[in-house]
């Protein structure tokens, strides 16, 4: 009963919205197909029940290709995250490194960094390496910047407390700066995770042997006869992006549960 009421209060509206959108979509699909008789109607807005049928038929293929994309994105993501955190720590330790790299890190936030993907692909020519590399370097900058912001967010009194304990520098990092930086790190990771997936799919679209992007492109070229399969790959791609975000959010709840956003009482948000 208690569980149910929580479900009602928090997720009912979202649930209703989803149902409403699905119904609207089905209606639009029917309208396009039978009323306005648009060309390629089912390619534009396919029936959702047809998509579900496709999913049950080709679930294994979709799963295998999705997994290939996701694991490559994940490896690159981890690599980029580790390097990003490392740079942030170096920047917070050394004024020199900070002055040297900070302007470039900021500029990287202003330029369309995904545009570099074809170039990296052009240099590497190896799909596996290119996927990992692009996922990694897309992850790198947001993580580095947000982690640095987190490391700097420590307030003076908290630092003074550490000084009053005559804490060694590594102690200050371990006991104070790292935990204080966790929320910042996670906001960087949450930005980066879907981007890493995007980068991996992008490389696959440019030419690769396996991955969800590859069958997406293939089914697109096959034309209207493969439109349900094409739409299924699009949905899997979107799902991978959302999944990556949810996984990081879940991790955050476990590793940094003290944050204001997670508080159940108080505040009217």
């Amino acid at each position: 009963m208690g569980m149910q009421s929580v479900l009602n209060r928090r997720w009912l509206p979202t649930f209703v919205w989803i149902i409403g959108l699905v119904l609207f979509w089905e209606l639009a699909s029917w309208f396009l197909l039978h009323v306005s008789e648009a060309p390629m109607a089912q390619s534009k807005i396919p029936y959702i029940h047809e998509l579900i049928i496709t999913f049950t038929e080709y679930g294994t293929t979709l799963f295998i290709e999705g997994r290939a994309t996701f694991s490559n994105a994940a490896i690159g993501f981890l690599l980029g995250a580790v390097l990003g955190v490392t740079l942030a720590v170096l920047m917070s330790v050394s004024k020199w490194i900070e002055q040297l790299t900070f302007p470039y890190a900021v500029a990287s936030q202003m330029i369309p960094i995904l545009g570099l993907a074809p170039i990296v692909y052009g240099i590497m020519r190896d799909e596996q390496v290119a996927r990992i590399l692009i996922a990694g370097y897309i992850t790198f900058f947001p993580v580095a910047l947000n982690m640095l912001r987190g490391l700097r967010s420590v307030d003076t009194s908290a630092l003074e407390l550490m000084y009053s304990y005559a804490a060694k520098p590594w102690m200050i990092y371990w006991k104070l700066r790292f935990p204080a930086a966790l929320p910042g790190l996670f906001s960087g990771l949450k930005i980066a995770a879907p981007l890493a997936v995007t980068g991996a799919i992008l490389v696959e679209l440019m030419g690769a042997q396996n991955g969800i992007g590859v069958i997406m492109l293939r089914n697109l070229y096959y034309g209207p006869s493969h439109n349900y399969m094409f739409w299924s790959t699009v949905i899997v791609g979107a799902f991978l992006g959302v999944m990556s975000y949810l996984i990081i959010s879940l991790l955050e709840r476990f590793l940094a549960p003290w944050q204001a956003d997670f508080r159940t009482n108080g505040g009217d948000r």
Partner: peptide
């Protein structure tokens, strides 16, 4: 509730 759905658009890869 609707906002949650829109927010999830943020995580959808553009290439898709």
């Amino acid at each position: 509730g609707g906002l949650v759905l829109i927010a999830s658009l943020n995580a959808v890869p553009i290439v898709a």
